[in-house]
Design a protein around this nucleic acid. Structure first.
Length: 467
RNA sequence: GGCGGCGUAGCCGAGUGGUUCAGGCAGGGGUCUGCAAAACCUCAUACGGCGGUUCGAUUCCGCCCGCCGCCUCCA
């Protein structure tokens, strides 16, 4: 398996620290607002990677944090006149709910920054003792001059950074590029006791402390959005490696989500909330969109992309629906050579830096072959094998081939069944006028009717679908 | 300005030094069907521009043009 690492800027053979195990840390959100599409893509991408590693037999430990102490949280709390902790709590709940809807597996560990202050203080003290950090007026700064390879991850040269760096009023840095490990808290801000007086942690230190706490030194993969490379991950790396230990072996960064070609970002107001999208669309559309381009490329999530992804998703689900009916509960047979070949294609694609677009193409090849098998009346066991393979590979990516649109209520299902049976009778009497009126009426109610040689089948139209 | 990336048929989007291909969406033509839908088959002068390397480049190199990201908080 090859994985591209931001640090080495090339694909490298993946060799886990502990054989058969993968320790993965993915930067989670700062919980001051609801998630947008960018958060969705990042989380889905790493969820798919995690699922694939599990599929390949690795014992994966997945850690993803919540940053629950931060300026923006404090600002929001002040605006609303409530405690910062309440703000964080609200948006952690919100995040968990959205990620569940997206089918993202909950992290094995989802540590909160505020629950790890002692570990951070401990790490900061060690950095100070080692001469890598210094205290100034209740703040503690990391001295970037003390870390030789500072800038290596983001490809920055220190003197170039130096040129644009500024020191905010009230800061007491020796060097403009030094960054805060610990900030003396101002009145009204959350604060914790520390050897340097009451304060709160800097942004970057939490990930260093928590990844070490749960994954130890030299863990396998550290992931996050491309926009975290600098300064966040550069600084994390400096803090964690300055004492001589190893940090992440591989740095993975997902490309950002664009809106009409421009980066989606909270600060510019240029973003689409996840809520807005999920109001009208199956969460799986978001997942398929996220995975139909390579994770390192930027993507545009516009209305046209959503429609295209919806149609693609429906193609998979439609196949599963027909296959399920064709097989009607029988056990799938052995996978034939064709199926093996596509499975191997899927694995080869994913082994090559998680090439999900190519992996998904293999699924579509299976769908076509499976549809062919149905059309040509192949044995149930064979169709079943295609169906099972499609379902299994979809699941590796976190997609559910089986989950077509759901009925609003069970009673509605029964009513539709009734109308369909009446319509079948009309069709047998060749009363095409009545049959067509019933089909149109059902269509208005969101029911798609498809006649076949074995009688009519129907399903609920998926949300947002035009047909 | 510095660093990085991208530019593939109508759209989205993989990939490769040459021989059959990505895949999806949309569109044309068929098959099937009472009609429709679904499904299957089939169709389009695709690789930003200019040079270079090569027997041969979309794929390697150089230059140019265009777009985007990071350099401040950000998945």
């Amino acid at each position: 398996m090859q994985i591209y690492s931001t640090l080495s800027r090339e694909k490298r053979q993946f060799v886990p620290r502990d054989q058969g195990k993968v320790a993965l840390y993915v930067c989670g959100p700062t919980v001051y607002d609801d998630p947008h599409l960018g958060h969705a893509r990042s989380t889905i991408v790493f969820d798919a990677i995690r699922r694939y590693l599990i599929y390949r037999g690795f014992d994966v430990t997945y850690v993803s944090n919540f940053t629950d102490v931060d300026d923006r949280i404090i600002n929001r709390a002040q605006q609303e006149g409530i405690e910062p902790a309440a703000v964080a709590e609200r948006y952690i709940e919100s995040w968990i709910g959205y990620m569940d809807r997206l089918g993202v597996m909950p992290p094995d560990i989802a540590p909160r920054a505020t629950a790890h202050i002692p570990q951070m203080i401990d790490l900061i003290e060690k950095l100070i003792e080692a001469g890598k950090a210094y205290e100034a007026n209740g703040d503690v700064y990391f001295s970037i001059a003390s870390f030789d390879s500072y800038g290596a991850l983001s490809g920055r040269k220190i003197d170039e950074l130096e040129a644009g760096a500024r020191v905010e009023p009230g800061e007491h840095k020796h060097d403009p590029l030094d960054f805060a490990l610990w900030k003396a808290s101002k009145p009204g801000e959350p604060s914790w006791d520390s050897p340097w007086g009451p304060g709160r942690p800097g942004w970057h230190i939490e990930c260093s402390a928590m990844s070490e706490e749960y994954l130890g030194e030299g863990f396998d993969i550290h992931g996050g959005g491309h926009d975290l490379i600098f300064p966040h991950h550069e600084n994390e790396r400096a803090q964690s490696e300055a004492l001589g230990g190893e940090f992440a072996q591989i740095w993975m960064h997902n490309g950002l989500v664009n809106l009409e070609g421009e980066k989606m970002s909270k600060s510019t107001g240029q973003f689409v909330s996840l809520a807005e999208i999920l109001e009208r669309n199956d969460p799986q559309i978001v997942r398929l969109m996220s995975l139909q381009s390579h994770y390192r490329r930027p993507v545009d999530f516009g209305p046209s992309e959503i429609d295209q992804a919806r149609a693609a998703l429906e193609r998979i689900q439609e196949f599963d629906r027909r296959a399920r009916q064709y097989v009607s509960g029988s056990e799938p047979g052995d996978a034939g050579e064709a199926i093996e070949a596509h499975r191997q294609g899927f694995i080869d694609a994913m082994d090559d830096d998680f090439n999900t677009p190519e992996a998904i193409a293999e699924i579509f090849e299976l769908v076509r072959a499976g549809n062919n098998a149905i059309d040509s009346g192949r044995p149930v066991a064979e169709v079943g094998a295609y169906m099972r393979e499609v379902e299994e590979l979809c699941e590796v990516l976190g997609l559910d081939a089986r989950q077509g649109a759901e009925a609003p209520t069970g009673a509605a299902d029964a009513l539709v069944d009734l109308v369909i049976s009446v319509r079948d009778e009309a069709r047998q009497k060749k009363d095409w006028d009545l049959a067509d009126r019933l089909r149109d009426a059902l269509a208005d109610l969101g029911v798609v009717v498809e006649d076949s040689s074995g009688g009519a089948v129907w399903h609920w139209r998926s949300p947002g679908s035009r047909t």
